[in-house]
Design a protein around this nucleic acid. Structure first.
Lengths: 255, 255
DNA sequence: CGCTGTGAAAGACTTCACAGCA
DNA sequence: TGCTGTGAAGTCTTTCACAGCG
């Protein structure tokens, strides 16, 4: 999923597997909920259920962090919250900027899940001068001209891009030039960045397309693909002799 | 990433690997951009760069769909757009409902990436009666009481949940009871659903936490973890003898 | 000759199953 | 006894490298 650099390319000794890192936030969320309910300890089975994974996976994941459980008992909730937070780097403060304050940017600015982890929204930035000064989620929007100054003054190393696709690469370049080394990209574009900069992306429509794929499968299990296609299947340019998936292909193939 | 059912649990004959399915939307996006620029053909190398993957992976992915390229030439852009769309089930119309019209719900309603694929926002639903009737992105918001009727009348099989975490499971249950079999969940909760229902989740803060993890790594490469922790490391309840990751641990461990 | 399509090898991740400690 | 921690096995994914077709 990450578009950024390859982590742990060769050595891989004390490194935590990427798949495990990606699940730590899930565990943390489940543990935080338990903590709020003052639950003192939890078994791998219970915690796994709360996080939506299976217990073997969870135990294996935790084994990369160290031996933080007690055999016959389970895990101490508070202690584990701390250990995972520390591992994820959430015991320190991360100032972030959000660039592009449309609906999505506003949603992000308002999102409680940032503040409650180590993230502090240092600034909201938008290219529209009309927005400058308007507070969103209690934070005044600043003009894009200020970007470099804001990043520098606040020591921002993480930037969030929620601009339209067309502006994303340019914003990205400026963020990187100003010193940002991690970027979360919501714009539907592939960003190119120099080595040493991490990019992760969230594309709102990709997940939906994956669901559609599986949904189609379900529907196709009994009825053999109903509904006439609305777009005429474009016949392949010059060459012939395509070999598609032989099974379920009605009258779509260009002879 | 998916919280839903296991796809292709045993048989795995004509199935496309899940990892490939997850990349098809990326290829589709890159191809669509090429198509708009009227580029007729593209090599695996070029397309891979545009999609942010490597070319071997791309060719392997396409090999699961069939032999749609021309050796010595590359892929026909239009033809490939069609084939991938079909494979993903995007040649048909997918009515979706979005439940929870806060900032995020509004952002989703306005998001162009849905409509341009096969997705049609059939309705926006919110629990707040004050919002009923207000149009968002040109679509009037309807009250949650109407949920079952809307889903039934429109034959909705995909639902998007952008409510607060507390409401998500309940909304999910109602969607499923009304006939929805695929759910995209933006609320930071693990949803439980019956077999046969797919859930995918997008958690805005998880990606940020993963970035923080890597960012911390970068910072720790030279200086050995500065800044005094703001929260006192909670000492483990009763038992002692924890064995953490030996290497980089300053004065954090509970003796 | 150039680029696709694909076996085969390598690598990453998950699951199993049980030894071992509290 | 009960549950963690973990080697080992199994599965999925990526990468290599080259045969083969246009």
């Amino acid at each position: 999923m990450a578009t950024g650099r390859n982590h742990r390319p060769a050595t891989r000794s004390r490194g935590i597997p990427e798949a495990t890192v990606a699940r730590l936030p899930l565990y943390l969320r489940a543990l935080t909920a338990l903590s709020e309910r003052s639950v003192p300890t939890v078994s791998s089975e219970e915690l796994a259920a709360a996080a939506g994974v299976n217990s073997a996976k969870l135990r294996k994941d935790f084994s990369y962090l160290g031996s933080y459980g007690t055999r016959g008992v389970g895990y101490d909730v508070e202690y584990l919250v701390y250990q995972i937070s520390r591992e994820l780097g959430l015991t320190q403060d991360w100032p972030v900027v959000i660039v592009g304050i449309g609906n999505l940017g506003a949603a992000l600015a308002n999102y409680g899940g940032f503040a409650s982890r180590g993230f502090r929204v240092a600034a909201l930035i938008d290219a529209d001068p009309a927005m400058a000064g308007t507070p969103v989620a209690g934070i005044p929007v600043q003009h894009a001209d200020e970007l470099e100054k804001i990043v520098g003054d606040n020591g921002v190393s993480i930037g969030v891009i929620s601009t339209p696709a067309g502006a994303a690469q340019q914003v990205c370049d400026r963020l990187v030039a100003a010193g940002v080394t991690s970027i979360l990209n919501f714009a539907p574009t592939v960003l190119s960045v120099p080595d040493g900069v991490d990019v992760r992306k969230v594309d709102l429509s990709i997940e939906l397309q994956i669901l559609a794929f599986h949904e189609q499968r379900k529907a196709g299990e009994d009825a053999t693909e109903s509904s006439p296609d609305q777009a005429a299947p474009p016949v392949r340019a010059a060459v012939g002799g395509r070999k598609g998936p032989d099974g379920d292909m009605p009258a779509v193939m260009p002879a």
